[in-house]
């Protein structure tokens, strides 16, 4: 089990002062601050869920962590290496340590490639099999542990012969076949039918445990995060606004934005009360980035000074941090009745 926030273990991923800015137009010289001054630790063996609405910067952040997006400034250390400092040759071997699973299993494959070819490709690229027999045995093992059994049969099929859930299992197999230390999954269940989602979630947890991987899981759906996360980090307009254990962030959210997000989750219970309105506007209404706390124009608890000072992430409980200048005084009611328990 991972050390939960603030434990003595060294983080596997250490993000410090990370900025990823995109230039919007050459002439105006204005830039979009997709990730803006993020510090984040991800501990070895834990599942960290990065949660946020569209436009929060969560995908850009994980791409920067895997060095798929250019970093404007700041650093991302994986284990003991800072990839930004690595020569190109070594970057490739580092890339092997970090693998991705993306949202759309329908788009990510070449339809003319067999499942064998899809799952064996990463092994061939990284020259990790010295013979056909070794290649086959690694591919079959990956397919089998991803629930595509019998692997010999699945290996011969093509993507269009599989269901959505099976295709997502193939993309997971193609990621874990390299035995990465960090698996980054970006909305991997949001295209899938409800009835197949939870088995894919438990597959992630099982693989993480059997291969001692660290799992960074991006989702817009807090109920998915609650199902599998050890810890949750919530992003809003390029900043992490709250982080803590799943029970802390969803059970007792401290930041008004997280509170609004958790409150708004429609629960499968007709007896649950309708969520009270509170938050104004939506993330897409925000033109440019507001000064001070980015959430202040929508926040029901905003004071004048919220528009002046950007609040730092500050401790509100053990391993629980929130970026709000009213951390000390606000007492936000728990939005849902939670039954605490463990993931997996």
């Amino acid at each position: 089990m991972a050390e939960r926030g603030g434990g003595p273990a060294a983080p596997f991923v250490a993000v410090r002062g990370l900025n990823v800015h995109f230039r919007r137009s050459r002439k105006a010289g204005e830039s979009v601050r997709a990730v803006d001054g993020v510090d984040l630790d991800i501990f070895t063996g834990e599942t960290l869920c990065l949660v946020g609405e569209s436009g929060s910067g969560k995908t850009t952040l994980v791409r920067a962590i895997g060095h798929l997006a250019p970093i404007t400034s700041g650093s991302v250390r994986l284990g003991d290496v800072d990839a930004a400092q690595l020569p190109r040759k070594e970057l490739r071997s580092m890339r092997r340590r970090v693998q991705y699973v993306f949202q759309d299993p329908f788009e990510s494959f070449d339809r003319r490639q067999s499942i064998f070819s899809i799952v064996s490709q990463p092994l061939r690229v990284h020259k990790l099999a010295s013979s056909r027999a070794e290649l086959e045995s690694k591919v079959y093992e990956a397919l089998e542990e991803c629930g595509l059994d019998p692997p010999g049969e699945f290996a011969k099929l093509y993507p269009h012969q599989l269901s959505g859930g099976q295709r997502q299992r193939v993309s997971i197999a193609a990621a874990v076949v390299l035995r990465p230390e960090l698996l980054i999954a970006d909305e991997p269940v949001s295209m899938l039918d409800v009835s197949v989602r939870s088995d894919i979630l438990s597959l992630f947890v099982r693989l993480k445990e059997s291969h001692r991987m660290t799992l960074l899981f991006v989702t817009h759906d807090l109920s998915v995060a609650w199902e599998i996360a050890d810890r949750i980090a919530v992003m809003y307009l390029g900043k992490v606004v709250e982080e803590g254990t799943a029970d802390q962030v969803i059970g007792r959210p401290a930041n008004p934005y997280t509170h609004a997000l958790v409150t708004a989750i429609p629960v499968p219970d007709p007896h649950a009360a309708a969520p009270p309105p509170g938050v104004k506007g939506d993330i897409g209404d925000i033109v440019g980035i507001p000064a001070g706390c980015r959430f202040h124009p929508r926040c029901p608890y905003a004071l004048d000074r919220c528009s002046q000072t950007a609040p730092p992430l500050a401790e509100v409980g053990e391993g629980h941090r929130s970026a709000c200048i009213r951390n000390e005084e606000l007492e936000l009611a728990p939005p849902h009745r939670l039954v605490a328990g463990t993931a997996g």
Binding site: S163, G165, S195, W226, E227, V267, P268, L338, T342
Partner: peptide, 24 residues
């Protein structure tokens, strides 16, 4: 029943949802 059990539910506890084997 199976569909309801496959949805994460705060009042049931974490990791308590189970998918339906196979696909529609």
């Amino acid at each position: 029943r199976a569909l309801l059990e496959s949805v994460p539910n705060f009042s049931r506890g974490r990791g308590k949802s189970h998918g339906i084997p196979g696909a529609p």
